[in-house]
Design a protein around this nucleic acid. Sequence first.
DNA 1: ATGGGCACCTGGCTGC
DNA 2: TGCAGCCAGGTGCCCA
Length: 271
Amino acid sequence: MPELPEVETTRRGIAPAVLDRTIERVVVREPRLRWRIPRSFAAAVGGQAIRNLRRRAKYLIFDLERGALILHLGMSGSLRLMPSDAPPLTHDHVDLVLDNAVCLRFNDPRRFGSLLWTSKDPLEHPLLAALAPEPLSDEFNAAYLARALKGRRVAIKQAIMNSQVVVGVGNIYASEALFRARIRPRRAAGRLRRQEIEALVEAVKAVLKDAIRAGGTTLRDYINPDGMPGYFRQKLYVYERTGEPCLACATPIKQLVQGQRSTYFCPQCQR
DNA sequence: ATGGGCACCTGGCTGC
DNA sequence: TGCAGCCAGGTGCCCA
């Protein structure tokens, strides 16, 4: 999936087309997403205008006149804008048909994504209520991270992918941020020195900002709402570069597995 | 409280 | 050509 930069790129891409538009109708072709879409969904959402489009962690929040839509792209989801009469393709699970003959179409081969409706404050939804700070906010700083990691024995790579520590950092950017901060991914989170925590905070912010600027990372199937890939892949230092020379020191990049996810690092640059 | 492992899915690639 | 096995941008839940 899309990590934070891909979700933010999606938000920016669709916002101009959907803000203040009314959702004329909803077409659910496949309700079996991460959480099954209930039959009542289309009626609850249809007829409402989209007042705001926000992102929290990797969730997109469409604020409606009454309640909100909460959308997650999962591992393989994407949103595209297209004419509402365009024929649906495989895995085009849901359409939000707008009042200007444009439709926002959700495609997700693996169906790990989700689409929820809530009548209440979406930030209080059980899936969102306990999330850690946004990485690009001032709240995510060295003092905060030091407190969050104190006493933790888990590997730092897994710690920064934990949404109770910081949100939005997935498998690509966790490896990339640790490379930029020169920290070995297997180090115990609670053993980092203050200076390393400061470097890591800055590295997380920098890599996410750089990736947003490039329109996100396309590895396989991620596309932005205009159907275009993201260009950050060309700027990855370690992710999926096993055996290739480190771009800083030419040492071959190593790969390991942590929590059933691949991790990439430079054994020379990262200590 | 913390950490580890599994589950949910489809599709693309590799190697026999 | 076919098929088994492995891997993939996430994360909630269950168990020790």
